[in-house]
Design a protein around this nucleic acid. Structure first.
Lengths: 227, 227
DNA sequence: CCAATGCTTCGACGAGCATCGAAGCATTCT
DNA sequence: AGAATGCTTCGATGCTCGTCGAAGCATTGG
């Protein structure tokens, strides 16, 4: 027996198609009930219950009771980061599930990665912030500059509240569709929240896709220029 | 059926303990023969052969025939990056395989992550390069500065050769033991090569651990100071 | 208090798969 | 050529685990 973290254990949890579907669904960031997850995975309620129990005891999912419902969510953003990285690898080695429906282009353009923006738009967001020197990378992790802090405040983000959370403020996350990094962390989540609050986007029901309104996209591109 | 990359497929490949052990062994960077991998995984030769066939057809391993031997290696550094990120997650949720033998502290201090340095020392290396402004991050990915290029040349690294490879020069990789990034990519690999060439370290046989010699550690700390 | 809803537990079935013995194929060594 | 080494293929075995029907438990609503 070897030493070190047991990756087989958690890989096996993700390795079942039903569980993988559930986890993917939860990358939308919202907590979902057992019934919703069963439908998402395409299995019966009993089967889903068994899977969810395993995911929970494996530390991948946390559960919250609300009345007669039980809502499940990923235990942390790092789970989402790992799942995205697995998607990137799966895409590279050619394991893409066929049927590229109408949703697929939308997902590549803009989607939710747990709680922040991913896809072309997410990558563009990070590029813009770096190019305008609102973000910089000191020790391999991102940090807001002085200008970045001012920008955040002006954009309507409550920085002190974010800093009170134990979560890293800025983090990169490798995008599976673009294979370039986008902005994650508390700041990434806050930016998506704010963009939604401003009405620039609407969430597709039961999907990770994020649809920009025509006006919203204009505002977004003006607010986050590439040059 | 959903669309998108099929993470269940590759997760299932990693999900078997025997295969996970093989993959972990291959993170040492060296190509290993089927027999060596069988021993590493603790299974018979026939079983190993079956596993290796699956890993190969799944796109995780590449094989190279040499005489009557078949040497397997990871198909790319991104596989190692994914495995390290899974280790980080497994460590966080508490799935560490017990028996923290004498190897364990050594692994945390310095180990090989496919082809570059990880552990405390690897993290320190990245920190030092950033603090001395030999590296900087422009669009979320790392890049050498002018000073960094001069440093590389002075340290005995053939930059033009590295740039000829299609591989990204500098990349970060999240460290499972420290949970902070270290330097990966072609540059990370070249630095480890050079450090080995200089005789500062010796590789533990059949292990990912990297042991610094006393003199080597002094040289290393002088070459990569933290302030 | 009874009915309805949401979910879990129990039990049984079945398929998939990891495992290894034995035989077969390829390569190298003498 | 014959023997030895390294690995794969075949076949059989056994076990794990995903699956769902039926029953049970908890919560909410009338």
């Amino acid at each position: 027996m070897k030493t070190g973290p047991d990756i087989a254990l958690i890989a096996a949890l993700v390795g079942d198609p039903a569980r993988a579907n559930m986890l993917t669904a939860l990358m939308g960031g919202k907590a979902l009930s057992a019934g919703e997850l069963a439908a998402e995975a395409g299995v019966s309620l009993q089967t889903a219950s068994s899977h969810l129990a395993k995911l929970e005891s494996g530390g991948l999912l946390a559960v919250e009771k609300q009345g007669r419902h039980r809502y499940f969510r990923l235990t942390g953003p790092d789970i989402a980061v790992m799942l995205e990285s697995m998607m990137g690898l799966a895409a590279r080695v050619g394991h893409v599930r066929t049927r590229p429906g109408p949703k697929d282009p939308a997902l590549r353009q803009a989607r939710v990665c747990y709680d922040h923006l991913a896809g072309d738009t997410g990558v563009r967001l990070l590029d813009s912030l770096l190019r305008r020197r609102l973000l910089r990378s000191t020790t391999g992790t991102l940090a807001l500059t002085k200008g970045g802090e001012e920008f955040a405040a002006a954009f309507g983000i409550d920085l002190p509240a974010l800093e009170r959370s134990r979560r890293p403020l800025c983090r990169t996350c490798l995008d599976w569709s673009v294979r370039r990094p986008h902005l994650a962390g508390a700041m990434g989540a806050a930016l998506l929240d704010r963009v939604a609050e401003l009405g620039w986007v609407r969430r597709e029901r039961n999907s990770r896709a994020v649809l920009f309104t025509a006006a919203g996209l204009r505002h977004f591109e003006r607010q986050f220029p590439l040059k």
